[in-house]
Design a protein around this nucleic acid. Sequence first.
DNA 1: TGTGTAAGTAAGTGACTACTTGCATTTGGG
DNA 2: CCCAAATGCAAGTAGTCACTTACTTACACA
Lengths: 208, 208
Amino acid sequence: MNRRDEILTAAAEVFAQHGFRGSTTRRIADAAGVNEITIFRQFGSKEALMREAMQYLTQSAKLATLPDFPVDPERELTVWGESFIQHLRLRSSIIRKTMSELEERPDMSECASDVPKRASNDLCRYLTALARQGMIADEFEPVTAAAMLMGAIFSDAMGREMMPEVFPQPAEKAAHMYARLLLRALGVENGPPRATNKQTKRSKQLSS
Amino acid sequence: MNRRDEILTAAAEVFAQHGFRGSTTRRIADAAGVNEITIFRQFGSKEALMREAMQYLTQSAKLATLPDFPVDPERELTVWGESFIQHLRLRSSIIRKTMSELEERPDMSECASDVPKRASNDLCRYLTALARQGMIADEFEPVTAAAMLMGAIFSDAMGREMMPEVFPQPAEKAAHMYARLLLRALGVENGPPRATNKQTKRSKQLSS
DNA sequence: TGTGTAAGTAAGTGACTACTTGCATTTGGG
DNA sequence: CCCAAATGCAAGTAGTCACTTACTTACACA
């Protein structure tokens, strides 16, 4: 690992803990085990360092993929949701800080909106594919449905620590429960696949 | 309006724009049209001022109520959701700042969790009442369902400004759409109540 | 008219901030 | 072994921060 990369990761850590204003060059240098001067020689200014640190982070973000051709919606959505919620939980501190810097430093934060945009896009595509395969009984709007699931997952990842009683228990099952609830809202049959069975009439009964 | 209250509201405004560290006593004094010294004489320290300002805010928050005996779930949930999302949207800046101060100043932020806790509680009670009245077809967990709706609303209020394409359009209909989706997930019959009630006719429903 | 209280003015404290300069030291490659 | 780049160290600059001290003004009320 490069000296430069060490500084970048240290900057990201300090930012996650203290935000932009609290990320003093002294603190970052200490966290990186590096002399403060080195930071200025490498990056020129705190601004430049932090900008580069943010890009460094968002570029390394990898999202789980949803299949192009749904087979087992409940399982696929759950796996995707669990991966997404875990991604957000691991980054909850830095996400909170980034969101609060939105107004004062929009150029630094806007790259952060990339991940949720891609996730929303993937999810919409998946839900549309579900509908195309006749697995969705009710008429629906993919953007609303996607916003609902992503919103539940996002809020859970951001807020569970502060108010656990508001969210379903246990935390590890949450993504699965959100996914199931969404599928029920869409009138999707659950259980394992059995060829491409098509059902256009709203079936209000899915519970086992 | 009291001098003291003027300072408190000014502090809240400055905090919403710049966060805790960015809320210098100078800025707050200017915003309040008051000498900086007055702040220290009135509140003793910046910490004390900000703490009081936060309480001042959360105490003034009023939530819409849900009826104890549901009559028209779609309508009632929509009205509640619209009120809640509007509440959050008006305060999105200050909520983002407060969430990002969680780790560094937990005592200051914890009073902020009061509103969502109360909202979640109200919503759970309402959903349970729905089930008790036999209006919910499927088995369900009220906490999960409540977290889903509140999560969608919260995320919408926090994120729409930054990435509008991720959320349903138009913004004014969003709460209604989330509420409808949730009710479908719970297998709630929509349409107005049967004979004994005379609510506004808001049937108009989905499943075709 | 006198007095107490809230507010203002002026000046300054020490700590911290981003950032700079000058010089010594380490390190790695040819 | 030498050179050059990278890094460290010591010190300093100008600015900002929360907060203080000492003194003055405005006003309500008795």
